[in-house]
Structures are given as C-alpha cells and as structure tokens.
C-alpha cells in the first residue's frame, strides 16, 4: 500500500510540474493556450493526490494528519483545493499560481522523501479539537500562501513599473504589463492575509483548548506554539500598519511575506528541528 501511495504522489507531482511548466512557458512566451492547460493539469494532479490521501484514511482508519508524510501531503492538497475554489470565483487569482505551484511541488518533494509508515495516534490526539486545530492550520497555510503569492507579484510589479526600470522597459509586451494593477494585487494580498490571520487565530485558540483539555495547560511555550505566536504577532503588525496607519508599499508587503515564511517555518521547518509537543505530529 505504501508503494501505491508513493506512486500516486509521484503521479501528482508529475502533473503539478507539467502544470507549472505550462504556466511559466505560457506567461513568458505569451502562449495563452498553455496557460489554460496549466490549471487543468494541476487540477488533474489533485485527483491522484486526493486518492492517495483517501487510501491513507481508509488504511489507517483515521483522518490522515499524523506524521510528516500525511501532514505535509494534506497541507499541499488542501492548499491547492482552496486555491482552485478561489480561482473559480475570482479570475485575478490565476496569477498567484506562479508562487503556489512551485511551493506545493517543493513540499510534496519532502513528502515523497519521508517515511510513509502509518503511525499510531496517541490517546491525547483522539479529540474533536485535533480536527479543528489541524483543519485551520491547513486553511492558514492555504490563505497565507495565496496572500504571499500576491505580495510577491505586487513587489515584482512595483519593481518594474517605478523608477528607472519603468523607463527602460518596453511597455505593453512583458509579463508585468499583463499582471493586474499594483493596487489590485496589494488588495488581494491584504484580503487573503486577513482571512489567513483569522484562521491562524482559530488554529492557535483550538490548539490551546486542546492542550488544556489534554494536559491541563493552555500554553507551554512549545517551539511550534511560540513560532506560530511570533507569526501571529507579525501578521498583527502587518494588519495594524496596513489597516489603521494606512501603510502601503514595499515595507509592509515584505512584513506580510516574512510572516508567511514564519508560518512555513512553524508548520514545516520545525519538524526537522526541535518541535517539542508537536514533534510526533511533524516528524
């Protein structure tokens, strides 16, 4: 069964890589037909990826969220599903694929290199709060990834449409000209980060409630807890600067990107270091 799961993951990676390649080629060489195929191929990739997760659910007899293999795979799958749901309603989100697809491929790379062994879930994990906590961790990742993607595109746009770069660039032919306006990119980044912030808060609160019911303590300065809190504070700073002090531009956008990198570190990076209470979940 493990071989089948790995095989399905590789199949999904193949589709994601093909989709990303189509996207990059379609954008830089202006092949609109390829652009359409990019999202179709990635959507096809979601199928074997989803089947692999479904099989894991069936075999393990529990929701597949425990251990690096399951946790990261689910993170990527749900992140992509969120992206496709948003894409269906808002065309502008098409552009975010340039960051989302490569990030997903990289994380899936970690998945196929980690052990697919099914781990037993400890007693303290058999609770309703586990589902809430982990579901919102994935939603946090999904929305903040899209927010970070828009932030990167906004910085790219800003770099090529202001100052000397704008003067030497031929207008109306490049990738930058086809991007939505800087204002629109910035607003979409803010919107996704705002939603992501709410989900991050739910993740932290549900984790605290779970910890309290399992171990009698809301907070224990566990590394993942601490780094999630740091990311939350950075997002809080971003939102205060953006919303109340009305900051716009490079600095505040970079704060949003840094906050996402902190989220990635808390959800993924710490699994390779000392993750404290979360070590079994992320290892």
């Amino acid at each position: 069964m493990a071989k089948l799961e790995i095989g399905l993951h590789w199949l999904a990676i193949t589709f994601y890589v093909l989709g990303t390649a189509c996207f990059v080629i379609g954008i830089y060489w202006r092949k609109d037909g390829l652009n359409r195929w990019c999202h179709r191929l990635t959507a096809i990739g979601l199928l074997p990826h989803g089947i692999a997760l479904g099989l894991r659910w069936l075999v393990a007899g529990r929701i597949p969220v425990y251990g690096r293999f399951e946790a990261f795979s689910g993170l990527v799958w749900l992140g992509l599903v969120i992206y496709f749901l948003l894409r269906r309603k808002y065309e502008v989100t098409d552009w975010a694929a340039i960051v989302i697809y490569p990030t997903s491929i990289l994380i899936l790379g970690i998945v196929v290199m980690s052990s697919p062994e099914i781990k037993e879930v400890p007693e303290t994990f058999k609770t309703f709060w586990l589902v809430v906590h982990i579901l919102f961790a994935k939603l946090t990742y999904g929305f903040n990834l899209i927010g970070a993607a828009f932030a990167v595109l906004y910085l790219h746009k800003l770099r090529h449409t202001t100052g000397s770069a704008a003067l030497i660039r031929q207008s109306g032919v490049s990738f930058v000209d086809r991007l939505p306006t800087g204002e629109e990119l910035d607003e979409w980044s803010y919107l996704c980060i705002s939603c992501g912030f709410v989900f991050l808060t739910v993740m932290i609160i549900s984790g605290s409630i779970w910890a309290n019911s399992a171990w009698g303590s809301y907070w224990s300065w566990d590394p993942v807890e601490t780094w999630s809190l740091i990311a939350w504070l950075v997002y809080g700073l971003y939102l205060h600067l953006r919303r109340t002090l009305n900051w716009r531009g490079v600095v505040v956008t970079w704060i949003g990107i840094i906050a996402f990198l902190l989220i990635l570190f808390a959800l993924i990076g710490l699994g390779f270091l000392d993750a404290g209470m979360h070590s079994q979940y992320l290892a």
Partner: peptide, 24 residues
C-alpha cells in the same frame, strides 16, 4: 495610539524571537 501599539508589537516580536532562540 496605534503607532505605540505597532512599536510594542515589533518589540514583542523581537523579544519572542530572542527568547525562542536564545533562552526560553
């Protein structure tokens, strides 16, 4: 003021950063 809140938030971020890396 929100400006003070932003400064304090930034301070807390660096403090938490320091505490998690150097000494819990």
């Amino acid at each position: 003021s929100v400006k003070l809140a932003s400064v304090l938030l930034a301070g807390l971020i660096f403090a938490a950063f320091y505490a998690s890396i150097v000494s819990r």
